[in-house]
């Protein structure tokens, strides 16, 4: 399965401005969050991307995507109706093709030679259905993530066949339904924020859309898991949710400490610790 398209959601009420924030990359260049994301996906072989934005924000996003403007289309989500709906807005763009989904307020830092997106696309290239990036996550973080149940695919380290997905489960439910063999107790496979989805998932989203209330993504993924082979792959990397408290700072520190500015930033931190008082 060759993945050429990507959908980036950036229309949520709190997301509208975050992708426009700037950060210093590990190699010292300064760019916007959305540019980081686009750099990573186009470097991984994606050929075109749709950014789902809130009405009236296209101008700001156009200036923020830097030199990728020719490969990007903007799709307006007229009202915030959930993450699933944001993706559904790009249905015309994705047509019947499989596509990569990313969130405009998340950044990724890979521990491997290849970027986080590339790692996912590598797995997806061997698959014929949806593939979600996941990471083993401590149960105390369950209130924040969609969590999958699955069994390891024999012979391929870090790849799982998904049997169920529950959005933000309690540990009580997780312990009963989401235990994955091989993981440490109290750890579950939680979504990493990057997926490769297929046309049937769009179909499920469309069927579930009622115009009233939010349309989440997870139930449609759970439906896909029941009807087609749905895989989850472990990604070697870190995710930064810049929407969280200090999220942008943490993302910046992560970038800086993994690049040329490491010593300089560590120096700042030590100096701050030494001179500030709580």
């Amino acid at each position: 399965m060759k993945i050429k398209k990507a959908v980036i959601t950036a229309a949520g009420p709190t997301q509208q401005h975050l992708p426009l924030q700037t950060l210093v990359s590990p190699n010292g260049t300064t760019k916007t969050v959305v540019a980081f994301i686009l750099d990573e996906i186009f470097a991984s072989g994606i050929e075109s991307a749709a950014i789902v934005i809130a009405p009236g924000t296209e101008k700001a996003f156009s200036s923020a995507v830097a030199n990728h403007l020719d490969k990007v289309v903007f799709i307006e989500q007229s009202a915030p109706q959930g993450y699933g709906h944001a993706i559904l807005c790009a249905r015309d763009f994705t047509a019947n093709d499989p596509f990569l989904v990313m969130m405009g307020d998340h950044l990724y830092l890979s521990f491997a030679k290849e970027s986080c997106v590339r790692q996912l696309l590598n797995f997806a290239s061997q698959a014929n259905g949806p593939v979600s990036a996941v990471q083993p996550t401590h149960e105390s973080k369950l209130p924040f993530y969609g969590t999958v149940a699955g069994s390891p695919v024999r012979g391929i380290q870090g790849l799982y066949e998904v049997s169920d997905i529950i959005e933000k489960p309690t540990p009580t439910i997780a312990e009963q339904e989401l235990i994955v063999p091989g993981l440490r107790s109290g750890s579950y496979l939680c979504f990493f924020g990057i997926h490769v989805l297929t046309a049937p998932v769009m179909e499920y989203l469309d069927q579930a859309f009622t115009k009233k209330g939010d349309l989440p993504l997870t139930p449609s993924l759970a439906a896909a898991a029941k009807s087609e082979k749905y895989l989850a792959c472990e990604i070697e990397g870190l995710r930064f949710n810049i929407e969280e408290s200090y999220g942008l700072l943490r993302a910046q520190l992560g970038m800086a400490l993994s690049g040329e500015g490491r010593d300089e930033v560590m120096g700042y931190i030590i100096e701050l610790i030494a001179t500030t008082r709580s």
Binding site: E139, S140, A174
Partner: peptide
């Protein structure tokens, strides 16, 4: 199952 996590927290 469903009770174990409470002893870990």
């Amino acid at each position: 199952r469903g009770n174990q996590w409470m002893f870990r927290m």
